[in-house]
Design a protein around this nucleic acid. Structure first.
Lengths: 229, 229
DNA sequence: TGTACATCAGTGAACGCGCGTTCACTGATGTAC
DNA sequence: TGTACATCAGTGAACGCGCGTTCACTGATGTAC
């Protein structure tokens, strides 16, 4: 809270030291320079790597510091704790959402509509392969009602939802989907499929369902459920 | 490992002390009696309660002991650590699966088919409300490739998968669903919807989609995707 | 039914490790002239 | 272009807390006669 007070004071007394939206700030609120941004970056990357390797439950500040090769004190210059760093990583992933949401907004009506869905599902599955560790914590903590992760998850889901809801409403207007289906709930259900299936993929593969079959099937479900048969 | 050796020795020399499948054993491998079973139960319930209250990441052995009103030493008599207790809770939930899977196996073809799906979705949502904390850890740890949680999750999913796959294959045989859809992947996708949507429910409600609309919509998606239009 | 003994169940108290966190300091970088 | 000074960035080392874990012990329950 002391930090916030300081920043408010800065803003009102000296506009030149006020942090703009683009600036990255240290834990004490001061805007940081090139070198520090690099260090911060290395800390974030190390956190993501450890998350991938050893899971969420026991990544410690000390582990991250060791991984980066710095003092633990350096960590605290940029993040309050490990969860704070994970929150940053999750916020970064929000920026990646448009890549996918834009392609849902595209027209799936034509003959290549299903093919577009296929590519989308394939790419999003790969995205989960790369970033699943962070996304899982985001979902877990949001499910556990941690307010900051709730907010990030909302941001993350938002664009997906808008794109999917638009598709459903369009299909309903054209009479290809029943009015009894709630557009938001339908969109949410499809988002659930996209976000949960990458995790199941490996177990499916062990049981004889190849990756391609999964992608094909999910693409078809997505296509049929969002645009009608 | 010493524990296992002892138990093997017991089994070969004195059948009466061998632990049967039903028996509950302490950490040292010995079969425990009525009083101990009660204590163990209280520990499990306290763990579940804390999980619900404060999330997975910082439930400590000490917390559980405090909650139950015992010494931490008591905890170690029955569980190796908190995760071990959570694993037990998850295993207990596996027993609840048939309640739901049986109702998927029932015929959804008649005029009341959709209604059956509705009730199923409603009840399973309530099940998630009650047991979400444990299920979330199960999924997280399984996603993180922890072998024991993977096994429990497999057991959990198994009955659901069998029931759903049967439905899809039936619909495919009757020509109501395309052959291009993989039955396992389709079942997995619907399981994903069932397991992820309860978590989104609250955010939906805040944005004006009531619980009933969600249940209705999910029921329709489930019904249409598993049995064909 | 009562007594003696065996086993089961639960615990208090302690030890020590490892992590979170801080602070005074050093070294690096930027800037004014 | 060089020098002096200001600010930024990073750190070593330490402190202390809190938790995990154990063990020798006490109390509770069961059982044989």
């Amino acid at each position: 809270m002391a930090v916030n007070e300081e920043r408010v004071a800065d803003a009102s007394t000296d506009a030149s030291t006020e942090a703009s939206a683009e600036d990255v700030v240290a834990t004490d609120g001061r805007v940081i320079g090139r070198r520090a941004i690099q260090t911060r970056r290395r800390i974030l990357d190390a956190t993501a790597a450890l998350l991938r390797q050893q899971g969420a439950l026991d990544v410690k500040v000390i582990d991250v510091a060791r991984e980066v090769g710095t003092s633990p004190a350096t960590f605290y210059q940029y993040f309050a704790d490990v969860e704070d760093a994970i929150l940053c990583l999750a916020a970064e992933l929000v920026e990646r959402v448009p890549e996918f949401a834009d392609r849902i907004e595209a027209d799936w009506g034509g003959p290549d509509g299903l093919d577009r869905a296929r590519h989308l599902v394939g790419d999003y599955t790969r995205f989960w392969d790369d970033n699943g560790a962070v996304l899982r914590i985001m979902h877990l903590r949001a499910d556990e009602k941690e307010p900051r992760f709730r907010r990030v998850r909302n941001d993350y889901n938002e664009r997906f939802m808008v794109a999917m809801v638009a598709k459903v409403r369009g299909a309903q207007a054209a009479g290809r989907l029943p009015q009894a289906m709630d557009a938001d709930a339908t969109a949410g259900a499809m988002l659930a499929v996209l976000d949960r299936l990458p995790s199941y993929r490996e177990s499916f593969e062990r049981r004889g369902t190849p990756r391609e079959a999964m992608i094909e099937t999910v693409a078809r479900i997505l296509h049929a459920t969002l645009t009608g048969p």
